[in-house]
């Protein structure tokens, strides 16, 4: 992304989110066809949409802040994975998503996007427990990418946390108010 002002950045994010919401409705997912590739990206449009669903299950909208989908996590994950991760890690994620799809099908008979929130959370908790036991499990990378994409987004940095480009001053010691977010 070339330098752009804040307004433009927000607009770009919103458009991407709109597109992904469409795919996540299952309109595209159910079709038998070649998965749509995205130029310069490792994840297909379907995989990117699935990653965003996973990210949004890990980091959903709450009372305090919008979640990963609102933050455009899918596109950001795809960008980071494609340009900042090793080929070996990329393969691990791509294969991992295949595995996750199979698991969904076997356990629920439905795609991840069609699961209830409770079912999604249950599935990801299982995967998380597995990944904690087995080093190098793909879900470790999936979680890392989701966290990274969300907490480096404008929403993650300013609505979940409280990043400011220009604090204006330094005060070493102030009381932390109940519920106060970190500075990001």
């Amino acid at each position: 992304m070339p330098p752009m002002n804040r307004r433009e950045a927000v607009r770009a994010t919103t458009l991407v989110v709109g597109g992904l919401l469409l795919t996540s409705n299952g309109l595209v997912l159910g079709c038998a066809r070649e998965p749509a590739r995205i130029a310069g990206r490792v994840l297909t449009a379907d995989d990117q949409a699935l990653m965003e669903e996973i990210a949004d299950t890990l980091l959903p909208t709450t009372k305090s802040s919008p979640g990963a989908r609102a933050a455009g996590a899918g596109a950001a994950i795809n960008l980071l994975l494609s340009e900042c991760y090793e080929p070996e890690q990329q393969v691990r994620v791509v294969n991992g998503l295949k595995e996750l799809r199979k698991k969904c099908d076997a356990e629920f008979g439905r795609a991840f996007a069609a699961l209830t929130t409770q079912e999604r959370e249950q599935l990801l908790r299982e995967l998380d427990a597995t990944a904690l036991r087995a080093k190098g499990h793909y879900f470790e990378l999936v979680r890392e990418l989701a966290d990274r994409a969300y907490f480096s987004s404008e929403i993650g940095m300013t609505r979940a946390r409280r990043w400011m480009l220009e604090p204006g001053k330094w005060v070493g010691c102030v009381p932390l108010l109940p519920g106060q977010p970190s500075w990001g």
């Binding site: 299950t57 890990l58 980091l59 959903p60 909208t61 709450t62 305090s64 802040s65 979640g67 959370e121 990801l124 908790r125 998380d128 979680r143 966290d147 969300y150 907490f151 979940a160 946390r161 932390l176 519920g179 106060q180 977010p181 970190s182 500075w183």
Partner: peptide, 16 residues
């Protein structure tokens, strides 16, 4: 401890 869902996200948003 719980690493999935709204509580997780809100916890990560706080200073540790």
């Amino acid at each position: 401890a719980d690493r999935v869902g709204g509580a997780y996200k809100d916890a990560l948003s706080k200073p540790g």
